[in-house]
Design a protein around this nucleic acid. Structure first.
Lengths: 332, 332
DNA sequence: CTGAAAGCGCTAACAT
DNA sequence: ATGTTAGCGCTTTCAG
């Protein structure tokens, strides 16, 4: 920068003004600009960050990118960020509190301008640290009890689970099992239970199977266990679509048909799931709009220099009925 | 830091040494550490970066995170990076050269320590700039002709396409159509053609259908077009699995069975694709190992301060045969 | 509108 | 093993 200044016959300050786009006399502007071009000068953003205390970088925490639900979120967050001239620093929590803590401290020291935390897994324990952070923080797709000190953009997971349950009830199912990522997805299961309870039907704890791993294999295994435990069940609810994919496979491999013998309902409406065979009935919610909303909330706080407005923004989930759910087969 | 130094009765330098874990007399160590704890001191990484010229951050370019292939890559890259104490700055190229260029300059100015570029889409035009970068750069899953100046970790895409073609030939298919993301996936198609050409069979350009969009819907539409154009075809090759998912749907909706009437072969072996119905036959390659290799190549270069060893590392693709491919139905 | 001086928080180099 | 000095590249005062 000093070189540019010397070459253009001005001071560093004037160069800085040019780069920042401030008012500069047209003739000095061209002088400086040619000097910049000739020297191939690129401003050093690190130095600027040190001086201004801002980094134009936003951190995003997700439990995992491999789950298509979160990859869509990541994509949308990046979209919005670049639209505002920000960069994305991505960190995975893997449901591991210690790991998350380390990452969190790292980000704080690196002074991201803001932080979006998606999914409470492994992060709940670190909430005090988040509250104490000296940059805006928002919570996204937060299923547990959110802390009252931080803004949240999420859905009513209990109600979403209820929608799935009501659908199954309306179809006439009485004997269902649940494949769940517990404890994090407890609200979804709770909602399902409430729908059944409304008709005086209880879903026993023994009908709730915790997935062994958080992928389709985990769903497959849990569904096998569920079918073994009760060969007469007529529906399966998986607390997220990846598990549901495995559950469908398990049902088909057992020689049963979906949905004629067993209905399967998922949760999240991830990308490919409407195009598999059979197309999955699942709980849908506007994740991309939610991501936009959350990022913009954060960015407004950054720009204004004030803490983010402390809202709980709950978008509405809906049920997308496709081919994997139908009335139960006639029973004796 | 000055405060800590004052409180501990030492200089900033000694504090710096403590933080860096250098040799310090035990008694000063404890003095400094208590001062750090009492004041809640956190080192400012931005300042350190300005001084040292390193950021402990690696940039990753991917065409899109929504495609499960790339989300797996992102996940693995992040895994390896954190293992080495690095952060991940993620950027999406969306196949848009201008957008990519802007992002690239941004990253350069922000001085990432290294850059991994996955997929050539929209990036090829920017290769000169990559070569000129003053930090290590490596190319990943690069399908086009890679520049000779940069290290590449990839597979032989032409050979991979050949594997798919040979499989179809061995099953006895003669009349196939291709659903392709062109022009980027041309080598895969070329390999398929070579396998058929070995038996004197040509795959006409009219049998190659370019996907309208890069998701399952695009595969669905292209497969419908292919079936309309030639209702007698017995196999479909999709140049990536997401398209293949749509293609299967199209075949099934047309009233045909997979694989009895039409075989479908994909490419990438993304996560859920082995568990859908029918399980997809596809070209597999060790993406995670490749990602590890690429990142470690980069990190070695960073640590040694020398440019990365300029290798072309081509891992071996294999064919994973599942349920979506079978011999063609008997023809008259 | 432009110039001069100061300093963001840290670490490299030397001196002690 | 610790203290001293200097400076990374930029922007924010404050003068001119």
């Amino acid at each position: 920068m000093a070189e540019v200044a010397a070459r253009a016959g001005v001071t560093k300050q004037t160069v800085s003004n040019v780069v920042a786009g401030k008012k500069v006399r047209p003739e000095t502007l061209t002088k400086v600009n040619t000097a910049i071009a000739e020297l191939g000068y690129k401003p050093n953003l690190v130095a600027r960050s040190l001086r201004t205390g801002t980094t134009s970088t936003v951190g995003l925490f997700v439990p995992s990118v491999a789950n298509p639900f979160y990859s869509e979120v990541v994509e949308e967050v990046e979209n919005v960020l670049v639209g505002h001239g920000y960069n994305l620093l991505l960190a995975t929590t893997r449901d591991d509190p210690d790991y998350t803590r380390a990452h969190l401290e790292n980000l704080a020291a690196r002074s991201v301008d803001a932080l979006l935390v998606a999914g409470d897994k492994g992060v709940v324990q670190q909430v005090p640290m988040l509250t104490a952070a000296d940059f805006p923080v928002a919570l996204f797709a937060w299923e547990g009890d959110p802390p009252t000190t931080l803004p949240v953009v999420s859905i009513d997971y209990e109600h979403a689970g209820f929608l799935a349950g009501r659908h199954l009830r309306e179809l006439g199912h009485r004997n269902v099992a649940v494949i769940a990522d517990l404890p994090s997805h407890a609200p979804r299961v709770g909602g399902l239970r409430r729908a059944f309870a409304a008709d005086g039907l209880a879903i026993d704890d023994r009908k709730v199977f915790t997935r062994t791993s958080d992928d389709a294999a985990g769903g497959y295994n849990a569904a096998c266990a569920a079918l073994d435990a009760d060969p007469d069940l007529t529906a399966l609810f998986a607390t997220h679509d990846v598990l549901a994919v495995g559950a469908i496979e398990a049902v088909l491999r057992s020689g049963r048909r979906v949905p004629e013998d067993v209905s399967v309902v998922g949760f999240d409406d991830i990308a490919q799931v409407g195009r598999i065979n059979p197309a999955l009935t699942t709980v849908t919610f506007p994740k991309r709009e939610m991501a936009q909303q959350a990022v913009e909330l954060l960015l407004r706080a950054v720009d204004s220099g004030r803490p983010p407005t402390n809202v709980i923004s709950l978008l509405r989930p809906t049920l997308t009925i496709r081919d994997s759910s139908a009335p139960p087969r006639a029973t004796a």
